[in-house]
Design a protein around this nucleic acid. Structure first.
Lengths: 118, 118
DNA sequence: ATCGTACATCGCAATTGAACGATAAGACTA
DNA sequence: TAGTCTTATCGTTCAATTGCGATGTACGAT
């Protein structure tokens, strides 16, 4: 189960009382935006850590991109470290792999019902 | 790219001008809620099509569940058909498989960058 | 014909999300 | 020190989401 959602997935990350559904939903939500998907793709393309380049590659204001990066960081999918005047972002491979695994498990649990019934 | 997001993923499904990112993000958003994840799991468990049972299994009002089901239907992940006085919901196996594939492709594109760089 | 059940939809309130511009903070450079 | 460049954060605006109760609608049964 997941014990409802209000007030809007509170204190999400810190609590040990996060159900599987909530846990997965939180990370999926981080992924569920075209800009954030694009950011992840960009970070994967360049194995160098960039940031300003992300802004240049997206039709969004710098502040907007910064917020998306913050969301991805809070979801644990991306790491950021200060590098002189700029900030260096990159994927967290472990977190990405974990999400991939959890999604795989989720879909595997679904598969027994291969036939639709309606 | 994805050509921004305002006004909030408009006319989403009908347009042929949906980029990959937008397409995927739209379906992920349908998944990115604990209640909807639970609904999908419930639909997969029971190979019989239910609906009232979903309401009984979730700590949510009937109207709320109905809205979540609508969202899943709009995302194409779930099919609903009227069956006398009740409505019969079930997963769309093809859509689920397609989403699984697209996610697999997405993660595969990411994998070249196995090492983190920060 | 009327009642009850089962869903869907409407209307509402509260919260969150997305986007932007403006500003603050930090780090090099001259 | 002053200036520039880069990024984060603040404040604001508008739209979308989440949740609920109430109402509507459709079907079956009495």
């Amino acid at each position: 189960m997941y014990d409802k959602c209000l007030p809007a997935m509170p204190a999400a990350a810190d609590s040990a009382f996060e159900t599987d559904s909530t846990q997965l939903a939180r990370r999926l939500k981080a992924l569920a935006h075209p800009a954030r998907l694009s950011i992840i793709e960009i970070l994967a393309e360049r194995d160098e850590c960039i940031c300003g380049e992300i802004v240049a590659d997206l039709p969004l204001a710098q502040s907007t991109v910064s917020q998306h990066l913050k969301a991805l960081k809070e979801a644990g999918l991306v790491q950021g470290s200060v590098d002189g005047p700029r900030t260096c972002y990159c994927l967290d491979p472990a977190a990405v792999a974990a999400l991939e695994d959890d999604l795989g498990a989720f879909f595997d649990d679904l598969s027994p019902t291969a036939a639709d019934c309606c």
